[in-house]
């Protein structure tokens, strides 16, 4: 009798699991369909992207990639180079500057520590628009408009404060005994930072690097404001250029370059997905 009931509940459980999986797969397909559509459309001739609804292109129009890559006013290679240079420097800046500052907040004792820490936390919540315009005036005064400095230099000054917070939390989890042992061996704070904290901080540094790269690579507003000549444009600006200069048959190249611009993000996603998801789950970073 009891086995019968168990069997029935087992069966209905299995069925409900199946329904749930069915729903999730269906939902996942809907979620991913726009990206599939983008990939497929980027391989269709421009004049039939909207009339030919087939999911598999009749023939592969690689021409779209070629024409997009050659570009309107500058080749896309230039935009990719610019984007990679800027995003890589942003990574270096954030990793170095934020880890310095986080080390001080997590391990050193200094005057006004509490108020400074509170101010640092407040800057995380502050909208960028609060400082956008005077920053522009300042960088314009320095003659830095149309260079990468206004985009990259702030990262070396630890302006992305949530990474400081992330690292402070991480350093607090590193046993203090390690510092003290090194101190007994005669190491000062600077050596402790380089020989103990920095190596153990690697997981948080990787999270910082990955998010810094993605956000800088995707950022549109800052380059839009500061990079004014086409040869300095980043990838998002290059896409915008294609969008703005479109003719009847430039859909194909525009979609092709859009997809290509997402490739670095796909690669990062596949390599670091655990890191990304843990980073969001533990700190609530925006995605």
């Amino acid at each position: 009798m009891t086995t019968d009931i168990n069997e029935i509940t087992e069966k209905s459980k299995a069925r409900s699991r199946l329904i749930t999986h069915g729903f999730l797969v269906f939902f996942a397909l809907i979620m991913l369909y726009p990206l599939v559509w983008l990939a497929v459309s980027s391989l269709k001739p421009s004049n039939i992207i909207f009339s030919d609804t087939s999911i598999i292109p009749r023939h592969f129009e690689w021409e779209n990639y070629y024409r997009g890559w050659v570009g309107v006013a500058a080749p896309f290679r230039t935009f990719f180079q610019n984007s990679f240079v800027i995003a890589s420097l942003a990574v270096v800046g954030n990793v170095l500057a934020c880890s310095f500052v986080a080390y001080a907040f997590a391990r050193l004792d200094f005057s006004f520590k509490r108020p400074l820490f509170a101010i640092m936390l407040m800057t995380i919540m502050l909208p960028v628009h609060a400082s956008l315009i005077p920053q522009y005036i300042l960088f314009n005064y320095f003659g830095w408009v149309n260079t990468i400095l206004p985009i990259v230099m702030p990262k070396f000054l630890a302006v992305d404060a949530f990474f400081i917070f992330l690292m402070v939390q991480f350093i607090r989890g590193i046993p203090r005994e390690l510092d003290e042992a090194a101190m007994i061996d005669g190491a000062g704070p600077i050596r402790i930072y380089f020989s103990i904290i920095l190596p153990l901080l690697t997981p948080a540094l990787v999270t910082t690097a990955v998010f810094s790269f993605i956000w800088t690579y995707e950022d549109f507003l800052t380059p839009l404001i500061y990079l004014t000549s086409i040869e300095n444009y980043t990838v998002p600006q290059g896409l915008r250029l294609l969008q703005a200069s479109r003719g009847a048959n430039s859909w194909g190249p525009m979609l092709a370059m859009s997809l290509l611009s997402l490739v670095p993000l796909f690669v990062i996603f596949f390599v670091f997905q655990r890191k990304l998801i843990d980073g969001i789950a533990t700190t609530g970073l925006k995605g």
């Binding site: 500052v101 640092m120 800057t123």
Partner: peptide, 26 residues
């Protein structure tokens, strides 16, 4: 003991950034 010297050395990027790129601009 407070380690002000070395601490503010480590903090210096953020302090410069905060004054020049956040507080000043606000």
């Amino acid at each position: 003991k407070k380690q002000n010297g070395v601490a503010f050395l480590f903090l210096s990027p953020w302090i410069i950034g905060f004054l020049m790129l956040t507080l000043g601009p606000i």
